[in-house]
Design a protein around this nucleic acid. Structure first.
Lengths: 148, 148
DNA sequence: CCGGATCCTCAATGATACTG
DNA sequence: CAGTATCATTGAGGATCCGG
C-alpha cells in the first residue's frame, strides 16, 4: 500500500522529492577507526561501566585492601550474589586481585591493580562531570516533563 | 544452628577469634560526600553510561546535526525502538535538542547541546583508557580462563 | 520519514537456602 | 566468613505492524 497521504496531491509530492534529495547527509562518516577495536572498546565499556563495578571501584580506591564483607557493607544495597559476580568479573579483567587466606573461617582480600586504579581515575572525569551538572540535568528534566 | 565445623575443636576456635578481632577494618569509610548527591550521580551515570547513549554521543560529536535515520545508520545494530527511546532520554536530560521540521514526510534533526558535548568529552577519558588497555585486559582474561 | 503501540523473549537481578 | 545453587521476577530490548 502506498502512503496515500503523501501522494494525494501534487504540492505535497514536490516537497517530498525536494527534501529527500537535498537534505540527507551524503554518508554517515561512522567510525574512522578499526571497527573491531571499536567493538571491543564498546563491549568493554559496557561491562565496566555498570553500576556495581563503578561503586566497587570507588570503594576500593579509597579503602585499599578490603575483604569481601567489608566491600559488601560499603556498597549500599548490593546483594551477595552481585557482589561475588561483579568481583569475579573485575578479577577476570585484571582490575583487581583476589587473595584467599587459608584460614578458618575463610578470609579473602581484594585490592585494585594498577589497571583498576587507572580505570577508576579515568572514570573520575565522568563522575566529576555528573556531580558538576546534576542541577542542570535536573532542571532540563523538569522542563521536559512540564512540556509533556 | 551453630557452624559445627568452626567450633568442633579448640585450635580452630582460637584462629577464628584472632582473625575476626584483629583484621576487620574498623569501619567502612564509605562516601564522605552527601549520600543524596551520591545517589543521584550514580543513577545519572547508570543511565548515561549505557551502550546506546555512548554510541549516539560519539556519533553526534562527529556528525554535528543529524537526522533520525542518519543516526540510525551510523549506529550499527540499534533497533528503531531503542534509537527513539535513547534519543528521548537524552533530550530529557538536556544532552541534545530535537528539532521537528513541519514538512512531509517528517524530518527531525538532533544536535548535542553544550551539556551533551561536555559529557562526551568526559567520556573521552574512559574511551581512551579502554582503547589503550584492550590488550592487557584481553591477556588478563585469557590468563584467568586458563587457570579455571 | 519518523515514531507510537504491541507482543514476546530472555537475560540480569534479587531472595532464599545451603556448604566448606 | 565467603561463597555456591536454585528459583522467581521483571523489565530491557527486538520484531512487527500501524499511523501522521
Amino acid at each position: 500500500m502506498a502512503p496515500a497521504a503523501f501522494l494525494s496531491e501534487e504540492g505535497t509530492r514536490k516537497i517530498y522529492t525536494y527534501l529527500t534529495e537535498s537534505v540527507l547527509p551524503p554518508a554517515p562518516p561512522l567510525a574512522e577507526i578499526d571497527p573491531r577495536v571499536n567493538r571491543l572498546v564498546i563491549e568493554l565499556i559496557g561491562r565496566v561501566a555498570d553500576k556495581w563495578t563503578m561503586l566497587i571501584l570507588e570503594v576500593l580506591t579509597e579503602g585499599g585492601t578490603m575483604r569481601f564483607s567489608a566491600i559488601g557493607r560499603a556498597v549500599p544495597g548490593i546483594s551477595q550474589k552481585m557482589l561475588t559476580q561483579t568481583l569475579r568479573q573485575m578479577e577476570r579483567d585484571g582490575l583487581l586481585t583476589r587473595t584467599v587466606h587459608p584460614v578458618i573461617p575463610p578470609r579473602v582480600d581484594y585490592r585494585l591493580t594498577d589497571l583498576g586504579l587507572g580505570l577508576a581515575e579515568a572514570f573520575c572525569g565522568v563522575w566529576q562531570w555528573a556531580e558538576a551538572h546534576l542541577d542542570r540535568i535536573d532542571a532540563a528534566r523538569r522542563d521536559f516533563d512540564q512540556r509533556a
